[in-house]
Design a protein around this nucleic acid. Sequence first.
DNA 1: CACACGCTAATTTTT
DNA 2: TTAGCGTGTG
Length: 685
Amino acid sequence: MSFDSNTLNPEQREAVTHGAGPLLVLAGAGSGKTRVIAARIAHLVLRAGVPAGAILAVTFTNKAAREMNGRVAAMLPRGEAPTICTFHAFGVKLLRAHIERLGYRRGFAIFDTQDQLSVVRNLMEEGDFDNLLLNPKEALFLLMQAKGKGVPAADLLANTAPREQMLGRIMTGYQAALQRMNAVDFEDILILSLRLCLEHPEAAAGFFARYRQVLVDEYQDTNQTQYDLLRHLVAAHRNLCVVGDDDQSIYGWRGAAPGNILEFERDFPGARVVRLEQNYRSTDTILAAANQVIRNNTRRKEKRLRGNQGPGKPIAWLVAEDEQEEMERVATHLKLAHLRDGAALSDFAVLYRSNHQSRAIEEALRGEGIPYQLVGGTRFYERKEVKDALAYLRLVENPADEVSLYRVLNYPRRGIGQASQLKLAEYAAHQGRPVHELLREAGQYGEFTGAVATAMERFGEMLERYRGRFAAEPMGTVFRALLAEIGFHRAVEKEHDDAKGRDRAVQLVLELELAVDQYGRNNPAAALKDYLERVALFTHLDNEEPEQRLPMVTLTTVHAAKGLEFPTVYIINAAEEVFPNRRALAGGEEEEERRLFYVAVTRARRQLVMSFAKVRRRFGQELKQKPSRFAREIDPGLFAGDSPQGGAAQAVKVDKTREAKSRFFNQIKMLGDPADAKPALPAAD
DNA sequence: CACACGCTAATTTTT
DNA sequence: TTAGCGTGTG
């Protein structure tokens, strides 16, 4: 296979064929960014003679990495492939080889937010910390922010502000605890990678040396640590190509430093800068709306998306009395477009600001019999049942993981209660020995009664036994045996007294067993730690292999929709305090919310629909709503009929007692709507 | 130590 | 409003 550079526009071609040295690509939404990166990789290999194995492309999400891998694979001959992965996956590769130099052991665990919170909670319970000054959740959030910026504990401790002081003490204790447990968090993966560069340059350089061309996708989402790591990575050759769009920076809350885009030209003098402003995705109407919204942001690099498809359909503004009616209107609108225009269900996406909003639209779609696919939502690997079961695997792999240990030491119940656990922890701290070592000798200490000591010893013995089995037998088999031995299913069932919840919980466990089993079968050479690493790094965005299922409507948060496109996009709940999100506004993040809205709008290819309810129920109370300020920033002339500027006043009253009739009426009304009746534009590809 | 009831926080986004 | 957590009781 190969690629055809003649299908590229001049700017794209410039980016693709750029030779050595730093390159900054400012890529507007829908400007063919992913295509450019893939084409550049192909160009480097096929035309510039760079070995595929010498290329590293870093993405922000696993989903992006997977898509990039697919595209590149289609353009390159079989054989050695470039490394295409997330920052974190790359960091883990590096740490797996060299973490022992940094005071950790092999087989380290990767802690997720829940695990981290558990550590912080324990820390704050045991030590002298003022919960009112900083509760565990706040503390963890600030801790991660500080870590993302590379702020050391010493700096925090040197600060006179009491909150900073406290945070500094928490950071010290937290890092000590993680090291004791041989665990790293997501930020540690990056920080330790960077530390390796600084403290063991020979080891890091040895690892990096093979990469002679480095590409970074979604550059605006990188944080300080990632940026520093990049600089070390390319220090020897400066062959760094970063692609990003400051208008699509939507991870500021996670410490992303979009300023990295500006710093790039300073830190890499002589960098070539290419701007991609030609949009191939959306109609002019959609692009106009996007431009009108984003231009209200003050801190941005001025740019303007140019389209080439003509105006297309106007934007639709659906107004309803309450949320239920809003979602019914969306579902009806969608169904009608599906039936009337013959559009596939996979052509539609419903976007919302935050995950919990999916519930209402799900109900409405179910009511209309429209199949949908939920992106994200409650994450499989974060479900209690799944985490409990996984805790056993994590313990087998890393016995020092006390978070997992205490999670399951008495689950399923084996008679080791809170008091005994506390005693165990204190005794371990007093002896300065790891908890798991003490377990197996519990009978030797007078601390524990006979029954408790026996239970502890049996627990320790069991883990040891399964450690051996996992090393020798297929992991799926051993995992099932383990769950059976401890009576896990029974324990899960016992936790629910309602049949629904029970079935759901059991189903989750069965799903997990299947996942472990399949992973073991598909990767016979893989060890347990490979599976655990995958679980830790992969998120719900990576819903296994892209299944070839029935066409379905996609339901997703705006964040998770970044990088995707759909012929028709619904932005639901386009109301003040919802989108923009109230807390974000309170935190002074209006501009990031606006960028998020901009991302939502630019996902649409041919039609954009926004919906709004005049009243929302919140905590059981009725709340009057106003149309989103972002929707109001769009020229009313771009809307068909109702617009957010005046739409609320003209809402169609729906008689609840005659819902079926009114729905029918709505359908007729929409069928007759001249704006809506325009035929869809042909595909612009 | 297990269970039940009642209180409180949640409603931002994810590697 | 609801889910998850903590406290108190048996």
